[in-house]
Design a protein around this nucleic acid. Sequence first.
DNA 1: TTGTCAACTGGACGCTTGTTCAGTTAGTCT
DNA 2: AGACTAACTGAACAAGCGTCCAGTTGACAA
Lengths: 205, 205
Amino acid sequence: MARKTGSNGEKTRAAVEEAAIRLIARHGFAAVSMRQIAREVGVQAGALYLYTPDKQSLLFDIMRGHMEHLLASWEAVAPDPATPAVARLERLVRFHIDYHIHRPEKVFISYMELRNLEPDNFAEIERLRREYEGVLEEILRAGATDGLFQMEDARITTMAMIAMLTGVSTWYRDSGRLQPAAIAAHYVDMAFRLVGGARVAQAAE
Amino acid sequence: MARKTGSNGEKTRAAVEEAAIRLIARHGFAAVSMRQIAREVGVQAGALYLYTPDKQSLLFDIMRGHMEHLLASWEAVAPDPATPAVARLERLVRFHIDYHIHRPEKVFISYMELRNLEPDNFAEIERLRREYEGVLEEILRAGATDGLFQMEDARITTMAMIAMLTGVSTWYRDSGRLQPAAIAAHYVDMAFRLVGGARVAQAAE
DNA sequence: TTGTCAACTGGACGCTTGTTCAGTTAGTCT
DNA sequence: AGACTAACTGAACAAGCGTCCAGTTGACAA
């Protein structure tokens, strides 16, 4: 046997990425072999090298893709910078919760597998991560400057809030007690508590 | 060569655990080999099996030890259950931050390597983790019942607070801007904000 | 219908993996 | 001094690893 009937490069490429994401999220990058990924796709291990130069790139591409898509998605819904910090924070929190709830595997990988990245790749992902943290920190500082928020330390509040928000992906289950919208509402409430800011009256979701 | 001069079982046992913790925290369980650990200890790979039945037990013992020590340490400093929830929460937050700042590697391992545990071992660690979460949740619910705290959802607030507090170990560095005591104070402040509770006047640390 | 190329196989490469074990040496007890 | 045991070596085991590549087959254009 060689080429399969009805085979198509783009389909296989997508299948490889999906299989890699699922397996790495479940077992961890180092614990997953190229042969396992290939078996999941329904192909021999050698065929994977038509789509990735090596195993490391497979991981890096997943993580970079995730971070870049996260940032681009935020850009697409981010309010004008002139918007009051209160509204911008609410938007960011809703965006973050929604995004993380719907991509648990990629989120998981992107912060569990950092140490399996080679130095250059690690630096790139860290840069993207810091860029995203910067978005939140800028909003918090702007709100503090305008007297909308009262925080003791903007940097620590940023780190605490990121950890709090991202944590949703560790416990959220589709079959759980609460719907995503309700969860987002709770996190918005908690985010405003953290910054000591009053939420302006707004249409409930 | 065989037995080394001045060799001693208990010393080697401790060295094996330390090396395992350091290496697993740095590279991940699956990425670390028994030979690497042995090299770090200054011994051949076979010698490790005098101290652990297999690689899996090495990981499980580290994680179980960590969780049991965490719970025991809390028991040792936990206030009487009759104490008002405000004081109990402050004590728990200070304890948690202090504990996590001083054991970054074990903390890291204990929630990064869950998926590398075999099912039975995983269940045991999960049980201990839930027991610890239960400590916080009980305090929050007690505070809500007594009208000291105002939360929309005690369960979500518990998860959010755990994530927020544990996150300290991802960014804390000994050489950082803030001292552990100052960091703990900030987290205490943020914890009280999250539960909507006023902190009673108390001696600053 | 033939030729070209994309898609894939199957087997091989040298290495590393976790684990076992017979043998060897250092410390300790009598 | 001799016996015993704790501590460890060094080599071996089968299995699996990431990666490569010559060869084979299906799809499609000329």
